[in-house]
Each structure stands twice: as structure tokens, then as C-alpha cells.
């Protein structure tokens, strides 16, 4: 199987986000970056499929040179080859999907994996946009996947349950937590990642459709109050919830 996985390089989830001086983006100084957590599940699933069915896994990221750090992480986990689509302009999901779809078209893969969501801008959009652009079926928020020949049976999470979706390959999948347990790169993996290729590509420019006008810190929540200590506080807590907050 030839598999592709799209991965993003995002600020650590524990990072404090500060707004940069233009008031439209976040300040990158001092932030440490990680592979987008959902993309890690996507990478792991590709590696498992390769182990089972043989083939090749290619990781693709759109961004500046710093994204190579995240591509190397995927290579260290066992991905065969990386592609960096070099573009650091602020772009919306549509433009991002276009750049990925253009590249993926020429790769003719059996399946393309994404994370269900990138934990920077939280759009949950790129994977499905790529699927639509390439005219491929998709299953998003996948927690279980079985591939048999050219058929895939996927389970996706919905409110209070699951949906079972059957699609024919080639298809697009977006990974949710629970799909698998991502491996840690082995020392050998880390060493061999250094000699694996990362190809650089330059996308044709596209006009963004969404313009960010401003970015702000959310208004601070009013400091809460301690109702009391131990069981003695319970009647007062219930009274406040009932009479003051009126939520029960």
C-alpha cells in the first residue's frame, strides 16, 4: 500500500499563547513545538498498515523549514519519506488543502491520513477539503479502521455513539484519539531518520478566502469563590447553584 499522512507542526499544548504586536497572530518567541497530537495517531495507523500490508508511507507538511523537525519525528517513528511544501504565509484551510491536494494528486496513494483537527487553529477542515478536492470518499474522526482489499470499514465517533462507514479505497481518513497508541521512536529510528529524504516543494500561490482581522486573549473569568470546606459547604453550594446561578 502506498500511504500518505499530512502532519502539522504546532505549539506544545501546555504553551501559554501570547498575541504578537500586529494583533492578528500569536507570538512564536520561546514556544516549543510538537507534532500535532492527532497527526501522531494518523502516522501510527499508517505504520501499522504498512507492517501488515507492506508498502510505503510518505509524510507531508506545509510550512517553513521548522516543520522539518516534525517531519523528522515522523521519519523516526518509521515513515519512509518526507515532503515539505514550503510556504510560510498565513493561509486558511482552503489554501492549505489546495496545496496538499495538488501534491497528493501526483502521488496516487491508496489512502491519505490526517488528524481530525490541528490543535493550533482547531479548524477540523483540511482533511475533508482535500477529500472533496480529489473527489475521494472520507471518514472523519475515526476510532477504528479495518482494511480488506480495496474496502475499508471505519468507525467514527459521533455524539453519544459511533457510525460505521464503508468506503472503497483510495479514501481519506482523519484520526481521533483511541484509534491506536502511537509508538515512541526507537534510537535506531532516530538515527535512520537522519538519512531519510525530505523533498522540498514550492506550491503555486493561492488567494486566502478567510482573513483574520484580530486575535485577542479571551476576557479573564471573574475570580471564583470558595464556598467552604468539607461536607459543611454542601448545602450552601446547592443553594447557590439553585438560587444564584439558577442552573439546577
Amino acid at each position: 500500500m502506498k500511504l500518505a499522512v499530512c502532519i502539522n507542526h504546532v505549539p506544545d499544548t501546555a504553551a501559554k499563547i501570547n498575541i504578537s504586536s500586529d494583533g492578528k497572530s500569536y507570538d512564536r518567541t520561546g514556544l516549543s513545538y510538537i507534532i500535532n497530537p492527532y497527526d501522531e495517531f494518523a502516522v501510527e495507523e499508517c505504520l501499522r498498515l504498512k507492517e501488515k500490508h507492506g508498502g510505503e508511507v510518505i509524510a507531508i507538511s506545509v510550512g517553513s523549514d521548522v516543520h522539518k523537525e516534525t517531519i523528522r519525528k515522523a521519519l523516526a517513528m518509521g515513515v519512509d519519506k518526507g515532503i515539505l511544501i514550503k510556504d510560510d504565509a498565513i493561509r486558511d484551510s482552503f489554501a492549505l488543502a489546495r496545496a496538499l491536494a495538488d501534491e497528493l494528486k501526483s502521488l496516487s496513494t491508496d489512502a491519505i491520513f490526517f488528524g481530525k483537527q490541528s490543535v493550533d487553529y482547531d479548524n477540523s477542515a483540511v482533511g475533508l477539503m482535500v477529500a472533496e478536492m480529489l473527489g475521494l470518499p472520507s471518514v472523519s474522526v475515526v476510532v477504528k479502521l479495518e482494511i480488506n482489499g480495496d474496502k475499508a470499514l471505519a468507525e467514527r465517533e459521533i455524539e453519544g455513539g459511533h457510525e460505521i462507514v464503508e468506503v472503497k479505497l483510495p479514501a481519506v481518513f482523519t484520526a481521533q484519539k483511541g484509534l491506536n497508541e502511537p509508538r515512541y521512536p526507537s534510537l535506531k529510528g532516530i538515527m535512520s531518520a537522519k538519512s531519510k529524504p525530505i523533498e522540498e516543494k514550492h506550491p503555486s500561490p493561492t488567494q486566502p478566502k478567510v482573513e483574520v482581522l484580530s486575535m485577542n486573549k479571551p476576557p479573564a473569568k471573574a475570580a471564583g469563590k470558595i464556598v467552604g470546606t468539607d461536607v459543611h459547604a454542601v448545602p450552601e453550594l446547592v443553594r447557590l447553584l439553585h438560587e444564584e446561578a439558577k442552573v439546577i
Binding site: 499563547i17 493550533d120 487553529y121 483574520v212 482581522l213 484580530s214 485577542n216 479571551p218
Partner: peptide
Amino acid sequence: VFAGKALT
């Protein structure tokens, strides 16, 4: 964005 750490 950033899981509510900022708003755009």
C-alpha cells in the same frame, strides 16, 4: 483558537 486560549 488554541482551544480557547485566544479568540480571533
